[in-house]
């Protein structure tokens, strides 16, 4: 931010003034090291909140979607681990990919990933999204989603049992704990 512009504050709109103030506070916090200190203190709280309320996107693609449904059914009851499916990408933290990705779906999927708000993770469930799986020579199947979006957790299996899916999400849980990132003044 340009501090020299502050004398023009009277001619700014309210929005511009708000942005300027926010930028000033953020940059001061980063420059003085206050952000680092506060991040270090508050990171456990952030990661505690994030890992215990993992909201995957309700996005059933193929076979593994039935196992995803079975995992939230009474026998496995994934909701006790904080897995609640949200129908909008804007409300979800985890993109759970449970099926093969065709060339027609690829741009849409990329867009879905970009629509999700910042702390986000991608879980590739099943062989198809991990590496193409049984469709290794199909002309229309993307050979693994990690060719175009970053993947955090791979759950192998064709399809993996609901136990395996829950195990994958527990690994994601541990990963969020290990990341231990503070998000003070982050967007």
């Amino acid at each position: 931010m340009d501090i020299d512009l502050s004398y023009q504050a009277m001619t700014m709109t309210a929005k511009q003034f708000g942005e300027m103030t926010q930028n000033f506070i953020r940059e001061t916090a980063v420059a003085t090291g206050a952000k680092k200190a506060i991040d270090k203190l508050t990171a456990p709280i952030w990661s505690w909140g994030q890992r215990n309320a993992i909201y995957p996107l309700h996005f059933g693609i193929a076979c593994c979607a039935l196992e995803m449904a079975a995992a939230s059914a009474p026998r496995w009851d994934a909701e006790r681990l904080g897995l609640i499916y949200r129908s909008s990408p804007r409300q979800s933290d985890v993109l759970l990919l449970n099926g093969w990705i065709s060339a027609k779906m690829r741009p849409t999927l990329r867009r879905l990933y970009e629509q999700m708000p910042a702390p986000k993770w991608v879980v590739a469930m099943g062989e198809c999204s991990v590496s193409g799986g049984p469709w290794y020579d199909a002309y229309n199947v993307i050979q693994g989603v990690d060719t175009f979006i970053p993947v955090d957790i791979y759950i192998p299996g064709c399809p993996p049992r609901p136990d395996a899916m829950i195990d994958g999400f527990l690994k994601l849980n541990r990963k969020i704990t290990a990341e231990n990132r503070g998000r003070f003044l982050d967007d």
Binding site: I61, G99, K104, T108, W135, D137, A138
Partner: peptide, 14 residues
Amino acid sequence: VGYLHRGWEKMVEN
């Protein structure tokens, strides 16, 4: 439709 097309009929010829 076509978002899950993977060319099954062509694939099984191999």
